[in-house]
Amino acid sequence: MKHFYRLLNYEFSRLFASAALLYFGVIATPLVFLNIAAKKSGNIYGRFEDLYADSGSIIIFAVFFAILCGIFIKNIYSDYWGSKGIYTLLSLPIKREYIYFSKLIAFFIVSIGFIGAQLVGYMIAYRFFAPDIIYDSAGMTIPREMHNGLFLSFIRSDFMRLFLPAGHESIVSSLAALTAVVCAVYYGALCERSRRYWGYIFIVFAAGLIIYTFNYRMQALYYSEYINMYPYSAVLFLLSGFFIWHGIRLVKSGAVA
C-alpha cells in the first residue's frame, strides 16, 4: 500500500503543473468572452445563464475538456518517450494493479478539480456579470441584484445542471459519465499501446451513451419523451468496469510495453 501511495503521488505530481494551468484557464477564459458578450445590446438585462451560453463559454469548456483529455494522454505516452519510464515502472517489484490504479486515481483527482474549477469559475463570473434589476420605487430607480440569483442561474442553466445535477437520477447520470470518461481515456491509450484496436468499439459506445443522455438532459425540460436514465447510467458503470478490468489485464500481461 505504501508503494501505491508513493506511486499515486508520483503520478499526480507529473500532472499537477498542467492541471493548475488548466484550472486557471477554465476560470479566467470565460470572463474575457463574457466581457465581450455583455456589451451586446441583446444581452443587457439578460439573465446570467443566457449570457453565459451566448458568450461561447460552453464551447470554451469543451475546448478545455479536450485539453484535459490531452493532458491525460500525454501523461500516458510520456512513459514511452525519452527515458521510457514504462520499463522502469513495469520492472518495479510491485503489483501491476498499483501501476494501473495510481494513474487512474490521479486522473480522477484532476478531473474532479476540473469540475470544481468550472463551478468556481461560474460563481466568479456571476459575481462580475450578474444583471441588476432596476426597481422603480416611488419615482426612484434602484438597481439591485436578483434575490437568490446565483442559485437560480445555476438551476436554470441547462449546461451547469450537468455538473450540479438536481435529483438522484441526474446525479447518478453525471457520476456515471465522469467515471466512464476517465476510464475510457486511459483504456483508449492502453488499447493503442497493446494494439487491441477492437477496444475502441466500447469507447465509441460509451461516448455515444454519454452524448445521448446529456443531450436528453439538456432538452428534457422543453420537449422530448421521458427517458429513465438509470439503465443508461448502469451501462456506463458496467463499461467503466470493463475498461478497468481489461486495462489491468493489459498492464499485467505486459502487452502495453
Binding site: 508513493r6 503521488n9 505530481s13 483527482i109 470544481g116 468556481v120
Partner: peptide
C-alpha cells in the same frame, strides 16, 4: 509527498461545498 491526497481533498471539498451552498 502527500500532494495527491491533499489535491483530492481540496477538489472534493470545493465541489461538495459549491453543491451544498447552491
Amino acid at each position: 509527498r502527500h500532494m495527491a491526497i491533499i489535491a483530492a481533498f481540496v477538489s472534493v471539498t470545493v465541489v461538495l461545498s459549491v453543491y451544498s451552498h447552491i
